[in-house]
Simulated scan of single mutants.
Amino acid sequence: MSDILKKHSVFAGYLFAIGATAMWSGNFIVARGLSDSIPPVSLAFCRWMVAVIVFTPFAIKNLIQEWPIIKKHITYFSITSFLGITTFNTLIYFAAQTTTAMNLSLISITFPIFIILFSRFLYNEVLTVKKGVGITIVLSGVLFLITKGKISTLLSISFTIGDVWMLTASIIFAVYSLFLKNKPEGLSIKALQLSTFILGLVFLFPFFLWELSTVHQSFLNQTTIPAILYVGIFASLCAFVLWNKSIVILGPSKAGMVYYTLPLFAGFLGYIFLHESIGMIHFYSMIFIFSGIIVTNHESKNKK
């Protein structure tokens, strides 16, 4: 009976991870679909404002109880919030103005590779041959994608600017993830998340005001409001809850492997809702990126 319950628990863990990944892929669809309807900073600001409003009732108690820890490490929280909340997601919305949801999702899953590279230089972690091969394969896939299969365009620096913005966002998210690995002791996930949501929103506010003063565009309507609610509630809060449940059940390695299916969801949703084409370039890039990530992760599993 215990084996049956264990299998059900594992199955639920994978469902949670898939649900979170599918919701995150929806964020790319919204970003791309609303690229002409709402400015990027405004979309980011509204997203995190909704997330703060919805998440506060669930986490305010933890935030109040653990405020001394947050106050003591305010520099850490400021940097983490600016990277992960203010900058990372805003760059995604900038990127969505000039590239497809499929490209966004494919490039986004490269962030674990950058974590490995930064860990090597910052923490002197060993970069093995397998990790080196995996990184090379992943970066080849990214270059193949952003140059549209014509590597010779590297000589003329002729990238799609949205792909470059997304690659920059992935690098920033890798740095943000390294900061999260070193979160202060005694801090709950709820307090960490709500504090970074709030601080990130505060840092984003001046840019939001600047955009409102320069881009005279009314963006709240019957189309954008449901989309903002989606990215604020589902792509932020619900996905976060499901993801953490999956990590508790499966562990970070197995849950992380599910995250790499994000381009599949984004490609399918982009095809259905945005009528984006899926070509052989995406297929070959996906093979490169997935293969490189699997090779890299295989090394870490052996070490365990």
Rank of each mutant, 00 (worst) to 15 (best):
S119M: 12
N27V: 04
S119D: 14
F179V: 01
W48I: 01
L204H: 04
F114E: 02
V52G: 01
T261L: 15
I146P: 03
A191L: 00
T90P: 06
T128V: 07
I85S: 02
F208K: 05
F173I: 08
L104F: 03
G33W: 02
T153R: 08
W67F: 12
F82Q: 00
Y76F: 15
L83I: 10
T168Q: 01
S140K: 06
L117R: 04
K71H: 08
T153W: 03
T214I: 09
I85Y: 01
S213L: 13
L83C: 14
G279H: 13
H282Y: 14
G132M: 06
I74G: 00
D36Q: 13
E211K: 06
P252M: 12
S218D: 15
L250P: 03
C238Y: 07
F144R: 05
L209T: 13
V241I: 15
F28I: 04
E299K: 07
D36V: 09
G134N: 05
Y76I: 00
L269K: 02
G19D: 12
S35R: 11
M1D: 11
H8E: 11
F219C: 10
F179S: 01
I233N: 05
I70N: 03
P184K: 03
E211P: 07
S119V: 07
T80D: 00
Q97A: 11
I70C: 06
L269Y: 15
P40S: 10
